[in-house]
């Protein structure tokens, strides 16, 4: 059995039939084919599946797709406008925050939420804001630098 949900995805209104028990993560990756959102721990511990629901960062593995009915979600694919990188995305590259890249969409979305709510965070606030996003390649230093650099641009 499926149910129809109405959701605005990266600015576009969508009507999609979804199996009721589908998680938001599976919905985004398997049904919408937006694979920038990544799957790792499936427990809400790693943050790789972070996207925005009503503008707030959430772990999409911890939500059912049905919960976003009538709402709005933004995935990593929705951040760059007309093919131009957002200042945050650009800062991640400029500061060398990106290695394998698997955690990066989640990191960028968490950082996006942080800067929306706190446009000029301190280093400690950045560390707190990103503490739900694991990275195994880097030492987090460059990721924090990137977020601070982006906060100076915006």
């Amino acid at each position: 059995m499926t149910m129809r949900i109405h959701v605005t995805v990266n600015g576009t209104e969508r009507e999609v039939d979804v199996v009721e028990s589908t998680t938001l993560l599976d919905f985004v990756r398997d049904d919408l084919h937006l694979t920038g959102t990544k799957e790792c721990c499936d427990l809400g511990e790693c943050g790789a599946c972070t996207l925005l629901v009503e503008g707030r960062a959430v772990n999409s593995c911890l939500m059912l797709a049905a919960e976003v009915e009538g709402g709005e979600i933004t995935t990593i694919e929705g951040l760059n406008e007309n093919g131009k990188l957002s200042p945050l995305q650009d800062a991640f590259l400029a500061k060398g925050a990106v290695q394998c890249g698997f955690c990066i969409p989640g990191q960028v979305m968490a950082a996006h939420d942080l800067l929306q709510r706190n446009p000029h965070p301190t280093l400690d606030e950045v560390k707190e804001g990103l503490s739900g996003n694991l990275c195994r390649c880097g030492g987090y230093v460059q990721i924090c630098e990137a977020v601070l650099a982006a906060s100076e641009v915006s």
């Binding site: 937006l34 694979t35 990188l85 995305q89 590259l93 890249g101």
Partner: peptide
């Protein structure tokens, strides 16, 4: 800058 970096910040990089 990292080669292949762009796709990693836009979600286009395919794993």
């Amino acid at each position: 800058r990292r080669f292949g970096g762009r796709g990693r910040v836009t979600g286009e990089q395919q794993f």
